[in-house]
């Protein structure tokens, strides 16, 4: 299979500790739910291709960040080179919802002169009985900041695909309209590469021979 992509987008996933950032990303990139996962330390990297329209592929590079305060000095370095972000809270944890505002401030103060297209994600929506944040109030908050809102569950694979693909589509439209421009020295968006040239590690590890011709 060819891994030709139109654009590469870098995304960042943020939110309080234990809202399920790593589990959501793993569900999206590996297609499985990890019952247990140790706390993310610093930043982890993930990647996946998505098809936003038939034949139109976008490569996503995703930074999974540690939620704990002490790691901010490390994680904040990753905002600048991100074009998009998923801001997670846990619908069963009101406090993580209250912190959404702080996360946006944190992001905005470290992303200048660029900006990040954020999607607000209410995670763990399979735990309806323990819900502490209503869909309406989350939508209202998202609207106030000009974000979309989606509820997801990594455990039951609800809306995980949709969250990433919707965000990718939104960014794609902004790139297509010229509102987001590719710039030298900025990793947020990169243009796809010329067909017939192998650059990608997927090609190499899947038995393709590296060709420097």
């Amino acid at each position: 299979m060819e891994t030709i992509w139109l654009y590469q987008f870098r995304l960042i996933v943020i939110g309080d500790s234990t809202v399920g950032k790593s589990c959501l990303i793993r569900r999206f990139t590996e297609g499985r739910f990890a019952q247990v996962s140790d706390p993310t330390v610093g930043v982890d990297f993930f990647s996946r291709l998505v098809e936003i329209e038939p034949g139109k592929r976008i490569k996503l590079q995703i930074w999974d960040t540690a939620g704990q305060e002490r790691f901010r000095s490390i994680t904040r370095a990753y905002y600048r080179n991100s074009v998009g972000g998923l801001l997670l809270f846990d619908i069963t944890n009101r406090r993580s919802f209250q912190n959404v505002h702080n996360w946006l401030e944190e992001a905005q103060s470290h992303v200048q002169p660029h900006s990040i297209v954020f999607l607000l994600v209410g995670h763990k929506c399979d735990l309806e009985a323990q819900r502490q944040v209503t869909q309406q109030e989350a939508e209202k908050l998202a609207g106030a900041y000009g974000m979309r809102y989606v509820e997801t569950s990594a455990r039951d694979a609800i809306n995980v695909e949709k969250a990433f693909v919707d965000l990718t589509r939104d960014i794609f439209e902004l790139v297509r309209s010229g509102d987001i421009k590719i710039q030298d020295g900025w990793e947020g968006v990169k243009s796809g590469f010329v067909p017939n040239t192998v650059h990608s590690s997927e090609e190499v590890t899947k038995g393709g021979r590296q060709c420097f011709c």
């Binding site: 990297f45 990608s200 590690s201 190499v204 590296q210």
Partner: peptide
């Protein structure tokens, strides 16, 4: 040295 892009390198190192 056999990895020839950012992504491959990061995935390996992690």
């Amino acid at each position: 040295l056999s990895m020839v892009d950012f992504q491959g390198l990061l995935m390996l190192l992690q």
